[in-house]
Design a protein around this nucleic acid. Structure first.
Lengths: 191, 191
DNA sequence: GTCTATAGTGCGATAGAC
DNA sequence: GTCTATCGCACTATAGAC
């Protein structure tokens, strides 16, 4: 028999989301989360650098699908087409089954500025990674940054639309629409 | 004679920037900043909700020039043209004289994730405000959000280029160039 | 695992300005 | 008298050091 139950991190994350959505993020203490997972406060901070990270750790893995999408883009592709390939390529990370969980998590984040800040930092970090990948393909600045940031913007807008959607649309369908909207925005001039 | 010296907030902000850039943000305590300004820690927190806010309070006023730029845009203008008017209209907030101060402040922010988070939240808040103003002009979603976010992206990229610039270019000139870059990005298709 | 510093809050007291 | 900026003290939670 094991000395401790496995999956401490996952238990902490599950307990945290439940407590945050149940009684509120701010008044939930790290000690409470740890206790709910059968662990001590010290262990909580051994797994997560700070209280906010409990909602974000693991989420980082979704950078790879974006990078894979960039590599999958053909040689002649426009910077924005490359980014589009990245964003749409990462759509597999958000199957319909995950939507209920994503909605709950997003509700908690939107209600707490501290968590919004952390999410924005993660998105900014993703954009910086994408921009670096574009530069690696020979795209110059500021085009690389603009394309990367635009891609992340499309992803964020699409993600919100996907969470709100009631028709069962997949996130990559929504992303394609939003990319077309973005193209229309800059293309159309006043009559 | 007054019981307290006036301008407590400004004194705190000045002392904070000096200490942050001199010995580092993290190891500078709120009590130290207060002491350097001839005040107590409790007074520091009466002026600023948290330690990070000391670098951002007052900065909020720069939302107004953006909104003024939106109102100044002609009726027939494209969403992106309206946003462009907002971003370029706010350029007056950053005269060359402010550049040395802006550079110092930015150096401190870039070196500390906590401060980056706060800056990102402020930018997200600005984007949300601009998107609301666009919807007020009849722009539908998701076009309003996309245009607003794109505008803020152009502003951020331009601001960084302005800080790095050695030729004495004004920020609105840089912004115009970056807006053209953005247009080129989405317009050009692979050959 | 314990111990400590710092961030941040709540409340009451003070003492001018009006 | 009221209003407001400040201080002082007690307190909790976070987070890092040892």
């Amino acid at each position: 028999m094991a000395r401790w139950e496995p999956g401490a991190r996952e238990r902490l994350q599950k307990a945290a989301l439940e407590l945050f959505s149940g009684k509120g993020y701010e008044i939930t203490t790290a000690a409470e989360i740890a206790q709910a997972a059968g662990l001590t406060e010290r262990t909580f901070f051994r797994h997560f650098a700070d209280k906010r990270e409990v909602l974000f750790t693991g989420q980082d893995e979704f950078t790879s699908p974006f990078l894979a999408g960039i590599e999958a883009a053909p040689q002649g592709a426009t910077p924005l087409e490359v980014v589009s390939s990245a964003v749409i390529g990462a759509a597999g990370f958000f199957p319909v089954e995950k939507r209920a969980y994503s909605r709950l998590r997003q509700t908690v984040i939107v209600a707490n500025p501290e968590l919004q800040e952390r999410e924005l930092l993660k998105m900014a970090s993703l954009a910086a990674t994408l921009a670096a990948a574009l530069r690696g393909r020979g795209v110059a600045e500021p085009a690389a940054s603009l394309a990367a940031e635009s891609g992340v913007t499309v992803f964020r807008v699409s993600f919100e639309l996907w969470l709100a959607d009631e028709t069962g649309a997949s996130i990559d369908d929504i992303e394609r629409k939003v990319f077309r909207e973005l193209g229309a925005l800059t293309a159309v001039t006043a009559e």
